[in-house]
Each structure stands twice: as C-alpha cells, then as structure tokens.
C-alpha cells in the first residue's frame, strides 16, 4: 500500500504546486522524448482549466465587471489555494466570494465579492429542492417564523442589486455608482424561477433579522405579510 499512497500524495502536491516542479515524483515518471515535467503539466493544466471553466460559468456577472482574463487569473489562484474536497462540482465555489475579498488585485473593485455572493446564491438555489412557503393569508397569529430555504440574502456595503442589474444589462452601467451606499438583495426561488429582489425599509430590516436567525420585535413584525407576499417565509415543510 505504501508505494501507491506516497505516489498519490506526491502527484497531488505536484498538481497543486508550481509549473515544471515534479517534487517527489522525480525519477518515477517516464519521459520518452517529452520530459516528465512537461507531461505532468498536462495534468496540472487539466486541473486548473477544468475547474476554472466550471467556475467561470457560475460567475458571468463578476466576469462582466472584471473581464474574462482577470476572472480566469483569479480562478486559477482560487482552485490551487482551495481545491475541491468532493467530486460534485456544482457544490464547489462557495468560497470564491470570500477569496475575492482578500485577493489583492481585486482591491480596485471591492464590490465584486458581493456580486459573486449573489451569483453563488443563484447557482445554489438552482440545485435546491423548492420548499413550501407561507401565503399571506396563512400567516400564524403567534409563534416563530423563519425565512424559507428558497431564500438567500446578500447584505452589502455596495448597491449590490443595482450592480447585478448593470452587470446583466438590465441597467446602463453609468446609472450605477458603486459608492452610492449599501443594498440588501434577496435571491428567491419561487415556482422554479430564481429572482433577485432589492429589499428596502422595514422589509429589509425584518429579512436581515430573520437571516441572522434572530427574533424580530413587534415593530418589525408589521412587515411579515410583505415578506410572505414575496414567497420568503417557510411553511415548515419541504415539497417532495
């Protein structure tokens, strides 16, 4: 067992390591005509390109802001620093927004991390089982209400909903000033469609309280019907 275990650990280290470095694989890879480091680069490229391409499909709006070359470079850093732990790639990439927060080249566009959070929320909901929701008329008189699993919230210091709309061509770019102040965007799966809803005022405050899993006060609860009307409250059951 020991031989193969060591080889697999060395191979993984080589794939995640710098180009042309064969590490512990030195002398164990046959290089007929094409030297071993160049042969190993094929696997290194497959890893970076395969994951990079899969992730780029999840973040088209980020790409609209930073351009394909920047996104590709950022993803290449991300996949090596945070490789997947499971083979279901649809579940890989949740950490990309946090990565962008700390990726020095993205410092000029600090709002794209929140745009990435919106896109990840949409991606995640695409693969989710839609839960049953409370209708306005079925609101309980008392007791705890919770946000539905069909909902994700992105609370941003930037106008993230407007930025997303500019990135998807629904608003002209010149209409959005990234420094115009924060917005909270709700991403909601409803009737098999995913929508982005900018939240404001009392609805925003109530949604944020529920998102933090805290108890809303009486003043906030006035806005429950509005949240129910947007299909954002769970009925406590999950549809088959």
């Amino acid at each position: 067992m020991a031989e193969l275990a060591r080889l697999q650990a060395d191979f993984a280290a080589a794939i995640l390591g710098p180009d042309a470095d064969v590490g512990g694989l030195g002398g164990r890879v046959e290089g007929d005509g094409i030297p071993a480091p160049l042969r190993l680069n094929v696997y290194r490229n497959n890893f970076r390109q395969g994951l990079g391409t899969a992730l780029a499909e999840i973040f088209p709006v980020v790409q609209a802001f930073v351009g394909p070359a920047f996104l590709k470079a950022a993803l290449r850093h991300f996949v090596v620093a945070y490789p997947p732990s499971e083979p279901m790639l649809y579940g890989y990439g949740a950490g990309f927004a946090d990565f962008l927060d700390h990726f020095p080249p993205a410092a000029q566009v600090p709002y794209v991390a929140d745009v990435a959070r919106v896109e990840w929320a949409m991606h995640e909901l695409q693969n989710a089982v839609e839960e049953g929701v409370l209708t306005t008329s079925a609101l309980p008189e008392a007791g705890r209400v919770r946000l539905s699993g069909n909902v994700r919230l992105v609370v941003s210091r930037y106008p993230v909903a407007s930025l997303w709309m500019a990135g998807t061509g629904q608003l002209p770019p010149e209409a959005v000033n990234p420094d115009a102040g924060g917005q909270t965007a709700a991403i909601v799966l409803s009737d098999m469609e995913i929508r982005l809803l900018p939240l404001e005022g009392g609805i925003k405050t109530l949604a944020e309280t529920l998102w933090r899993d805290e108890e809303p006060d009486a003043a906030q609860l006035v806005h429950l019907p509005a949240l129910a009307g947007r299909g954002m409250l769970t009925d406590g059951e999950t549809q088959a």
């Binding site: 031989e3 193969l4 696997y43 890893f47 395969g50 994951l51 490789p83 083979p87």
Partner: peptide
C-alpha cells in the same frame, strides 16, 4: 484516481500498473 487526503483533483489521474494497484 482523483482523490487523496480529502482533496478532489478533478481529473482521471494515471496509476502505476503494478500488482499493488
């Protein structure tokens, strides 16, 4: 193979074809 030590390498990686393997 594609998995070692909790990392998934997203490729069909080669094996030494030995009796151990």
């Amino acid at each position: 193979w594609s998995r070692t030590g909790g990392t998934y390498l997203n490729d069909l990686l080669p094996l030494p074809l030995t009796t151990e393997t």
